[in-house]
Design a protein around this nucleic acid. Structure first.
Lengths: 176, 176
DNA sequence: AAGATCACTTGCATTATGCAAGCTAGTGAC
DNA sequence: GTCACTAGCTTGCATAATGCAAGTGATCTT
């Protein structure tokens, strides 16, 4: 049978999920972002079976999100630390955190983002870096980028509803 | 055996993943955010097996992220549209998109976020809504929120490295 | 020398996922 | 009216993926 891979899709979301879309992977990255590094720290934190954890860690290392480093030779011990790409996953984690707090925390948020120095709670929001404008739905949308090939241009690798109009070239009208 | 659920964890990231963490779920939400609504649109877009798609749609409806609506009676036809909670998932999608573009698009981004009117590309960035300051790692971190219970306070539901100091009460020093 | 710890691996059971096919309720063409 | 066709699924069966329990090897502690 074999599980279908997202890796050959053009969409960057699909490519991201190819690396972190499996059960446990994101929680492992969360714990790594919290500072956990050792095998049994992850195991105790997550309550995950050791064979699964070993598989996930291996996959995350191969995906370039974690680095396996020997920190002791006399007892051979390795630790797993975030690579720059893995550390850069933090915005996704925090977006997930904020979304979970908004919708699935009826008793109030149990985890929040705070200013490290003052302890004041922060409220995550996506903006455009240059203009600073909030990235909200009707005003912004996704569209084909420069590296979209002609085959998928104007539909993000999505075989959407058929459209007879030919795409102009630069940016096709995309949904959203 | 039974797959382990994240639903009973306190961490909002785990709760979010309980709803969208399965294979295909996030890509279905992506397509729904692009405007797809019908069963066979999703199927054609994703190349997903129909039984799996049916199961995922059902789960997303039960999770409150999609709403199933009848739009035709004479041929009985339903459509799936995003609920407010599902639509609010967009920041996570765009954070994933930006992360994928930064790290897994060697040939350049094939999908980007643009201003709907001008078509100018936007660069997603997380900030604190009130102060407007960028939410970056050393300056901000995650910490226990008001609804964290004593058992997990100071560790986000994470059984981290043992610490002998008692937690003060309000905000425990957490990793990150 | 007898545990204890860390970081796993191996065996085997249970789910989840996938493909192909079928099925139901209609619609349009003749 | 019946034949083909579409949309939106369901059913059967094969193949991964996930989980639990137990075991292994290297080292450290007592």
């Amino acid at each position: 049978m074999r599980r279908k891979s997202f890796g050959n899709m053009q969409c960057p979301i699909a490519r991201s999920l190819e690396r972190v879309g499996e059960w446990w992977s994101i929680l492992i990255l969360r714990d790594a972002a919290l500072g956990l590094t050792r095998f049994d720290q992850f195991q105790e934190s997550l309550g995950i079976a050791p064979n699964i954890l070993a598989r996930r860690l291996k996959a995350l290392v191969e995906a370039g999100l974690l680095e396996r480093r020997r920190y002791s030779d006399k007892p051979p011990r390795d630790e797993y630390v975030l690579t720059p790409a893995g550390s850069d996953f933090r915005p996704v984690l925090w977006a997930l955190l904020a979304w979970g707090n908004r919708h699935f925390a009826p008793e109030g948020p149990s985890v929040v983002i705070v200013d490290s120095k003052t302890g004041v709670e922060a409220e995550p929001m996506l903006v455009d870096r240059r203009s600073g404008r909030p990235l909200v739905a009707p005003h912004f949308r996704s569209a084909s980028g420069p590296a979209a090939d002609a085959r998928t241009r104007g539909r993000h690798g999505v075989v959407a509803a058929k459209r007879s109009d030919a795409e102009p070239a630069a940016q096709g009208r995309d949904g959203d």
